[in-house]
Write a protein that binds this DNA or RNA. Structure first.
Lengths: 241, 241
DNA sequence: GATGCAATTTGATTGAAGTCAAAGAGCATG
DNA sequence: CATGCTCTTTGACTTCAATCAAATTGCATC
């Protein structure tokens, strides 16, 4: 990564902020060297452990962050405690909205996570200066919108079996975008989180996982380690035909 | 409206495109007079009757449009015919995405609709020229994202009763944003569409409407005309505490 | 106002997912 | 390696919404 950076730019100006270190993508990817120098002065790298909140529902948002590592879950909660996960964010996604000061949802680390945090005024100034950056954020919003709408179809019209398969497929494709025929990965969510993402109960998720295992669509070790021998078969089980 | 326009601008330059006529908002609202002149040369006003497609799922998109009047439903369909409405668009929303050439969903008129249509290259040039316009589209995308996520909570975690009440509340607030205590309106969707929006069957929607009527939360005339005597009560029935 | 058709409602029954309860695994800690 | 804890699975039973099957209503047309 470091080598590539040198090859392309062949100079001493930074191409990522100090806190992000060698990671491209996210906000850093579209800034000028001068903007990166400025950003580096105010950004800090932070570790957020699984289960900790990044931003609470209804809270004032004082900072923005790039995800460097791990998975963040975005969720909404009703007054009586019913909860729905409305999105998952992976590196190098951006958390927070310039010029919107109140969050309508809770962002919480699903796994242990590393983020690069900037103060609000800095990122807002960069957005005003750089139409590139707004374009980048606009594109992420459109990607999130597409994902949200795909998930609405899953929530509204799929069976419990298809929902669980859809979830396993979604995670697989996000963790490894080059799709081979088979793959093995660590689930970033507990059964309770999966249930909240799928609009099901823990017990139903468990039963459907067992069924998919018995049918040979997946193998499971230690509750979290999933092997998908045939991605196309999983996709079919998810109802994506 | 025309009078207001004159008062504010006091000149002969257009403030909306020819086809949109006196309507502000949507794309027109953020363009310069020169851009509006340019846009007017290529835009056409079009009537789309209820049930007709504006853009089909997977089709190449050759144009963009502003909704002037009526309601457009955005939906996704599975191979076996199961359908989910993933969004409703009202005037003056914009339909279409600059630089994305394939639609991932179907846009269909729910009611008789009027739209102002522009060819793709025109709007893409205007977006490149005007950061204002991208900002406007970005904001609409964020609004749609918020609405999609709110609806995910409804789809995943609410009961049939709460879903139907949520729908009636959603339509009421979109058709008349100044919320009085009571209101009467024409439903823009059939029972079948409501079912597809809520992830329910027609029969369940009907039963829950009947129940809300018998409980005095709403009154219904001629299937489509709904009166809500107490919006707060409807909101509570929708689970929005 | 009678006719025909689609949209909506209502009823009887079934079934998928939820609830309640208990047992079993996984994983830290002393 | 026993202890205590949480997380997950499994089992028995219930319930809410789906399905299947008529009625009924609304509405355009003759």
């Amino acid at each position: 990564m470091d080598m590539m950076r040198k090859d392309i730019h062949n100079s001493e100006v930074p191409v990522v902020c100090r806190s992000c270190e060698a990671r491209h993508g996210g906000v850093c990817g579209v800034l000028t060297p001068q903007q990166l120098v400025e950003l580096s002065k105010h950004s800090t790298r932070k570790v957020v452990h699984a289960g900790n909140e990044v931003v609470g529902q209804g809270e004032r948002v004082a900072s923005y962050s790039n995800i460097l590592k791990g998975v963040i879950k975005l969720s909404k909660m009703m007054a009586d405690g019913r909860q729905q996960i409305v999105g998952l964010q992976f590196a190098p996604d951006f958390i927070g909205r310039p010029f919107h000061h109140e969050s309508t949802l809770t962002a919480e680390a699903a796994t242990d996570t590393e983020v690069c945090v900037f103060p609000k005024p800095i990122i807002e100034r960069l957005v005003s200066e750089s139409s590139n950056l707004e374009h980048q954020l606009h594109n992420q919003a459109l990607k999130e919108l597409d994902e949200a709408r795909d998930w609405m179809l899953t929530l509204g019209r799929k069976t419990a079996q298809e929902k669980v398969a859809s979830f396993l497929y979604l995670i697989a494709t996000h963790l490894d975008p080059e799709k081979g025929e088979s793959m093995t990965y660590e689930l970033p969510l507990s059964r309770a989180d999966i249930a909240d993402f799928l609009g099901l109960t823990i017990e139903t998720v468990s039963r459907q996982m067992t069924k998919l295992r018995k049918d040979g669509v997946i193998q499971i070790e230690n509750n979290r380690l999933v092997t998908v021998p045939d991605m196309d078969r999983l996709s079919r089980a998810a109802g994506n035909d």
